[in-house]
């Protein structure tokens, strides 16, 4: 899938391109809005990542221009301004999602995947990862056929990691999704919770499913 990055800061553009390319996307970059618009006219992109603070025409301007020209490509905008009005403005102008700088790359990757996946994709009721089986409807999990005795929160945590299998899930996202702590909270708590979950999910078995990605978060990998 092809992605366009419009970002004037060359370092940021470079690492975004690198990271996304390594995750299987074809990436073009442009350092200013008009160049980006020209590329959009020429190629068909699955997604545009747009920085708001651009020299000359700013991101808002480009965004409205894209929509005015009838290009329906999903847009994910990056902003350093973290005000509610800014977010609302972006979404009003037709952006599909936004990320506030500084952000973790894993978070960006997750958002990109979500935006691209958005649509009629149905989540299966039962997830199977290696010998782990998670029944999302009955809130039950088992490994090698043995039922795992999990608390509701532990189950939510496991299900979150399993649904995002192969992606790193940040501590902040875990705190938000599992406990509803959608603010900057004490993330040591997440480490404790994951440690406890591991005791039940991984310790009794030889194959360890839950991986720590240092400095980023946790993930379940199926290989």
């Amino acid at each position: 899938m092809r992605i366009l990055i419009v970002e004037d800061e060359s370092k940021a553009a470079a690492y975004l391109k690198k990271g996304l390319s390594e995750n299987g996307f074809v990436v073009d970059t442009s350092s200013e809005g008009d160049g980006g618009l020209a590329l959009m006219e020429k190629n068909e992109y699955a997604l545009v990542i747009l920085d708001v603070m651009l020299p000359g025409r700013d991101g808002w301007d480009i965004l409205s221009e894209i929509r005015r020209r009838g290009i329906a490509t999903p847009v994910l905008f990056l902003t350093a301004k973290d005000s509610v009005q800014d977010r609302v403005k972006g979404l009003d102008l037709g952006a599909d999602d936004y990320l506030v700088k500084p952000f973790a790359f894993s978070e960006l990757l997750a958002r990109v995947r979500t935006v691209l996946r958005r649509g009629p994709v149905r989540q299966p009721d039962i997830l199977n990862i290696a010998d782990l089986e998670i029944d999302l409807l009955r809130h039950r999990a088992a490994r090698q056929g043995t039922k795992l005795d999990l608390t509701p929160k532990e189950f939510s945590l496991l299900a979150l990691l399993a649904r995002r299998c192969g992606e790193v899930v940040s501590r902040a996202l875990i705190a938000d999704q599992v406990w509803g702590m959608n603010f900057d909270s004490d993330t040591n708590v997440v480490d404790v919770a994951v440690r406890r979950l591991r005791r039940k999910v991984d310790d009794p078995f030889e194959k360890k499913l839950i991986q720590t990605v240092r400095g980023v978060g946790y993930m379940i990998e199926n290989d």
Partner: peptide
């Protein structure tokens, strides 16, 4: 990896300061 941890720490401080600044402004 160690660097990433330090960056998170910095990011956390900035995040908190922004929160405080916003709370004090009329925004």
């Amino acid at each position: 990896e160690s660097s990433l941890e330090e960056y998170s720490r910095l990011s956390h401080v900035i995040e908190s300061l922004l929160f405080l600044a916003r709370a004090e402004s009329s925004e």
